[in-house]
Design a protein around this nucleic acid. Sequence first.
DNA 1: TTAACATATCATTAATTAATGATATGTTTA
DNA 2: TAAACATATCATTAATTAATGATATGTTAA
Lengths: 102, 102
Amino acid sequence: MTLTLTESKVRFLESLADKTRLRIVEALREKEKTVTQLVQELGATQSNISGHLRLLKISGIIKSRQEGKYVYYSLASSAIADFLTKLEDMLIAMKREALESA
Amino acid sequence: MTLTLTESKVRFLESLADKTRLRIVEALREKEKTVTQLVQELGATQSNISGHLRLLKISGIIKSRQEGKYVYYSLASSAIADFLTKLEDMLIAMKREALESA
DNA sequence: TTAACATATCATTAATTAATGATATGTTTA
DNA sequence: TAAACATATCATTAATTAATGATATGTTAA
């Protein structure tokens, strides 16, 4: 099952197009974190966070390593962080353009 | 109803995280197009395309201008095209990294 | 080795949403 | 003006998915 480039883009965008998942990914930009740390930081249930982490991992956006009873999650690539920066820059640019044309 | 930055990002990503909408936006990178042109190019129904165009316009991703009985749609900002380029570059970079570590 | 802790999985429920077909609105042209 | 064309809107249906609570699995420490 090889995806077309457009399908790959959609999969990637879908993975980030959820408030909880985007907050997880932004939290992981700072440093790797355990499930419990993310649960506390985001104020969501453990089951909910674990489910989202699973999806993000399958999508190739994050990776994990186990250390004793803890599982540390982190971004799979620095390209993800660059992309998030670009997303933010773009929204700011669009907001500015919208104000200028008003 | 002012959105937080994270919410704005999610809204934007949701708007593009659909195969039909992403294809529309990529089709509009080339040049402005009418609804009928998009219907033909994408092979979808007119009602379906119109609905997606409406959503993309509300999201601020595309804009439109009417010329007689035609409505021409185009990208709202060149920042959108830049973002799509970045998305594609990132996916290619991630694919390369995945192959290297294999 | 049992209790406590960390994480993953599963079934259910509620909500969201894309597609469709029908119809309405608006514009041009015969 | 009426027919043809272009686009928008609406109700319905089907499918997807996020959240929740419960439970299972795996790890450490008492």
